[in-house]
Amino acid sequence: MPVPTDPSPALAEYAHPERLVTTAWLADHLGDEGLVVVESDEDVLLYETGHIAGAVKVDWHTDLNDPVTRDYVDGEAFARLMSAKGISRDSTVVVYGDKSNWWAAYALWVFTLFGHEDVRLLDGGRAAWLAEDRPMTTDAPSPAPTDYPVVERRDEEVRAFAPDVLAHLGNGPLVDVRSPEEYTGERTHMPAYPEEGALRGGHIPTAQSVPWARAAAEDGRFKGRAELEAIYTGEKGLQPGDDVIAYCRIGERSSHTWFVLTHLLGFDKVRNYDGSWTEWGNAVRVPIATGSEPGDAPARRS
């Protein structure tokens, strides 16, 4: 049975408030039957330095990525992971993490690929919890294994591949959530981040630039709905019925934007292109655009 949703008025304005919980709600519900808290960080050791009591760790790279193919783990590996973390198919999962929940949103998106029904984000993530001086512990939980079923991943609804993006050019909006310097092509990686080896700088033609962080408030929580609408539907002209593809460099920052568009603004069809710039910027025979303008869709190759 799912854990009740957070009735906080702060969340009520969003399209799907059941996808978020506040720090206060989580503090009150820790230990509830059916609730599993997951920490998912960029830094692979951060969890070990202290985490919310009872929270289990899911690492985006070592747990969710397939070690050989550039892809996510398959249904069997996901089922093993869920069992090891004490997560059942009907568990309510609350994910939180560092860096304004980038990696937490990424983990939530991967849970979505496997159709895990009830997965929520802790608004503000790890930083918000710590800013309120809420307790952390280094005690490692030892969850009882579950019998999580082997579920085949369903990529088509929320995930886009390069051919999908190519076919999308000129037919629907694309959102590039990287930094302005990455968008224009001045640089191929995030400022102060490692060079991940894209051969060319720029963006996918027709993509609009909306850096992910515009959706986050100063404290790392999501901005209010009106502010978000002013950016995505007002300034950029996206409509909730649009078929939208978001991308970044490896798909993590665009998971954050995917969450905003899908769960906070209620868009029906948003896909995350996780191949993102590390694939597109290196791919043979795909067009790019440079500079600050979105650029035109290329003529169809016959």
């Binding site: 830094d43 692979v44 050791l45 951060l46 070990e48 330095t49 560092d98």
Partner: peptide, 9 residues
């Protein structure tokens, strides 16, 4: 920073 334990390691 302390929030970057891997890098510190």
């Amino acid at each position: 920073p302390a929030e970057a334990p891997t890098t510190r390691g």
